[in-house]
Design a protein around this nucleic acid. Structure first.
Lengths: 178, 178
DNA sequence: CGTATGTAATGAGCGCCGACCCATACCAAA
DNA sequence: TTTGGTATGGGTCGGCGCTCATTACATACG
């Protein structure tokens, strides 16, 4: 993992490699800590994103927050989503909590458009939409598609969110009128 | 990169490390070749997915093909999307061609629902939707969210595709009726 | 048949760099 | 001056990518 060796991490925070091992168990411990911190940051920034004039604008703002964060922290971001910790380690509860928190934030933003829906339906919709935004982000951050780059990522998320929301309200009106 | 060293690759195909270097320039060459082969496979399988009774069913089948492929080839899949080749290397044209081919396949499946739309609009919609499906796949394959697992991935892609399509046709009818 | 020739596979070994350790140095506070 | 906690970074050891002298084997020839 280039750029994420113990020596490099130590240099980047201007400590020696040995000091890392006084504080952390091993490198995976360091990386897990970084992952948790980053995900907490993201969850907080999403939660603090101001509610827009309309649900659609709110969702758009959330997507922008998410994409911007990933682009601003490309290296760490790739770390979080590409480095799978050893499966022997117990899955981090903190990590999962923040994932749920992100889902809750999105779910809250979706709620005004899904008045008749159950909490489960809202959660599903929120997680699906977030996973979609995440997919666009991941491709943009890792330069995997020539057309989906840093500059177009927000256009893509906008198209996704707006079309998805249109689909939600279409179903909603059908459900309500039925 | 555990599990993807030259020695391990050699062992897994029951050759010696040296043989790899008779055939390939270096390890990155091996990995790039794997990536291209895998993406070609995916593109072919998508292209060969039978057209369903309705566009919605067709898209669903495409998503299933995509997700199934990723789950059947977890390790390689993670390789393709997590290992970024050195930026010094010229980006592989073949790789990009296959990415475009996938977009074209999805775009073709979307076409019946977007009669009045331009080719650019159809391409955008196709790429956005595919990136979304990819996001769900990526999270499922890497076990990053407790609720989005191998068993629920298809439910998630189904919700995404159907809601997205609903959004498309909602816009379509508006555009047409206007 | 035995022998020569070309090709393909080998795997021990080289140099390097990774994670991780620990004897040592440092420096406040007592 | 002593002491205790903290940071250090050279060093160990293992595994890495990669090489190349050597081997194994199929085919061609006398």
């Amino acid at each position: 993992m280039p750029g994420l060796s113990a020596r490099e991490i130590a240099r980047s925070i201007e400590y020696s490699p040995g000091t890392l091992y006084n504080i952390f168990e091993n490198l995976d411990d360091v990386l897990l800590t970084l992952q948790v911190e980053m995900l907490r940051d993201v969850a907080c920034q999403l939660a603090e994103t101001p509610i827009g004039a309309t649900p659609a604008l709110h969702i758009d703002a959330l997507a922008k927050t998410y994409v911007d964060y990933a682009l601003r922290n490309r290296k760490l971001w790739n770390l979080l989503f590409s480095h799978s910790l050893p499966t022997t380690a117990a899955p981090s509860k903190a990590l999962h909590d923040y994932v749920f928190a992100i889902g809750d934030t999105v779910s809250g933003a979706l709620a005004p458009l899904m008045i008749g829906a159950s909490a489960a339906e809202k959660n599903l919709a929120a997680r699906v939409l977030w996973a979609g935004v995440h997919g666009i982000t991941a491709i943009a951050v890792t330069d995997k598609a020539p057309f989906l780059t840093v500059t177009t990522a927000l256009d893509y998320t906008h198209t996704l969110t707006q079309t998805f929301l249109d689909g939600l309200v279409a179903n909603q009106t059908i459900a309500v009128s039925a």
